[in-house]
Design a binder for these strands. Structure first.
Lengths: 135, 135
DNA sequence: TTACATCTTGTTATATTATAACAATCTAAA
DNA sequence: TTTAGATTGTTATAATATAACAAGATGTAA
């Protein structure tokens, strides 16, 4: 029941909700998650939001801010919690996490006009996915 | 009453709401905007959201997705509507629009692993602003 | 000018997303 | 085994956003 690393130990609710998001082919919204886990005893929005907050915090999932939806992290789990990039299809709403060493290096080293650096960022690209482009 | 370019002509509600946001030193939330324009006859959330939608569409304002708040565009107005970058202070919540030719060039030319390019994106950097860093 | 299409408005109601507050329970480590 | 801290369950409510529809304004073309 326990994993080796404490930082990855999920509580029951967290595990249930993570499993659901992880299996979903698309980002899930909080109340859709709630609906799906009610049969497992999670009945209230707060129970969902608390688990989501924690999962985001430890990097197991990410929030797609422009969609108010959540997806599981597949970039060697939890390392990318503070530096995320996604592509979002404006037609089918497919979301893909971008893992590009070049991009993350560029952004982590970016200095604004005051010379300030930022190790934490969220980038959302919008366009058409391959499938929708063809149509 | 009319400006030279039709695409910049604002309706009464749009103008009232844009002026308010433009004067604000910080991003404004929809219901705070509503509260502030009620004395000018804008009484319902939908009137605010409709104006906001239009102002975002034509690039006069931007939405800070992670904060559900809106700020006026100061990058030669409306040209940056589809390619936005901001720095956000995690303590005082100060938000600054980043206008960096290098950054926008890099992101506009970024290709994902499928070779796909995206002309539209939103980037939010998080950190501490100068003032909050000192404290 | 008139008539039409389109856009914008005003309004009520409601949907969706998220948090406050607090008592009870569980868990990990001393 | 006790105690501090995290997590849970629960009710209520706050904050953000859209649906639906009637009425009014505006541009344009005959």
């Amino acid at each position: 029941m326990k994993t080796v690393h404490k930082e990855h130990t999920l509580t029951k609710n967290q595990q249930i909700i993570f499993d659901l998001i992880d299996k979903s082919p698309e980002p899930m919204k909080a109340y859709s998650i709630l609906f799906n886990v009610q049969k497992k005893g999670i009945k209230a929005p707060l129970q969902v939001y608390r688990a989501l907050d924690k999962l985001v915090e430890i990097g197991k999932i990410h929030k797609i801010e422009s969609r108010n939806a959540f997806i599981a992290c597949h970039n060697s789990s939890c390392q990318m919690a503070n530096a995320t990039a996604f592509s979002i299809c404006e037609i089918c709403e497919k979301v893909t996490e971008i893992s590009s060493a070049g991009l993350s290096k560029y952004l982590a080293n970016f200095k604004d006009k005051d010379g300030m650096k930022y190790s934490k960022y969220n980038l959302e690209f919008f366009g058409l996915c391959k499938k929708c482009k063809v149509k």
